[in-house]
Design a protein around this nucleic acid. Structure first.
Lengths: 140, 140
DNA sequence: CAGCATCCGCTACGATACTG
DNA sequence: CAGTATCGTAGCGGATGCTG
């Protein structure tokens, strides 16, 4: 855990505790990628080896060309995956997980692990009293 | 990590490598929370201590009541944060980070750290040749 | 095969007004 | 103070059809 710098002080820990506002929008972008419906799935698939367009479409269940192309492009532009086009008569394009994407997936993996681990716990909370909402009394 | 079943063959780790399809939708929910525009921000703020509704609205810049209430409710229902209402004459409600939310934030923190760390690297890729798109030639 | 273009529904989100 | 209710919008994402 590295703090770029200590910003927050006693009271004004502020919204973004140890996050410089300059990086805020960028962080959002990464977080958005993670929250993306397909990005993580595609990365997960590519983790097991390079794959071509059509194969990806087959491996990622329910994705549309539009989204496949779109997500693929974004991931490529971010350098998370690599795109290699072979100028053959039947065009062949292979996508592979770039080291950068591999690093990201490592962390996302923990997220997935955490999610799986606390699966029941969260479901239990939902079925319960609607969360851990407590009521306290006190006279003003 | 359990496989729901063997999907492909040896090498074909498949779409959801080690993720049982049963958990898939749940994983998505967690990933969605992370990708959420406000959830992480709110958690980050609460990490520095319990806070009331109005304070949260002040600490999280640019959030609307609608979204604050909505996100707060979701996080509470998931048990990521806790809600305590004091039945006083001027109503007072305090939100605090639940242990579950703390655990999640620990991982998200890594994500943020990673993002900050590879900030330049990704930006460089975008300015570059439009990603690591390579062209290979081969005769058919 | 590997895309791009177009249309279109859904819902996430914001702004505003009102209440217990 | 701590919300609820309603409305309007923008962008995500799906379906379909066409191209190099």
């Amino acid at each position: 855990m590295q703090d770029s710098a200590d910003i927050g002080m006693a009271a004004a820990v502020g919204p973004c505790a140890s996050i410089p506002a300059e990086h805020m929008d960028f962080i959002r972008q990464v977080l958005d990628r993670v929250g993306d419906k397909w990005s993580v799935l595609i990365i997960a698939v590519l983790e097991s080896g390079p794959m071509r367009y059509t194969d990806l479409q087959r491996q990622v269940p329910g994705i549309s060309q539009r989204m496949l192309t779109h997500t693929l492009r974004q991931l490529t532009e971010d350098g998370l995956i690599s795109r290699t086009a072979y100028a053959e008569v039947p065009p062949r394009v292979e996508y592979a997980l770039a080291p950068l994407g591999g690093g990201l997936y490592g962390i996302v993996r923990q997220l997935i692990g955490w999610a799986a681990e606390h699966h029941d716990e969260i479901r239990a909370n939902r079925s319960g009293a609607g969360g851990s909402a407590t009521s306290a009394s006190s006279r003003s």
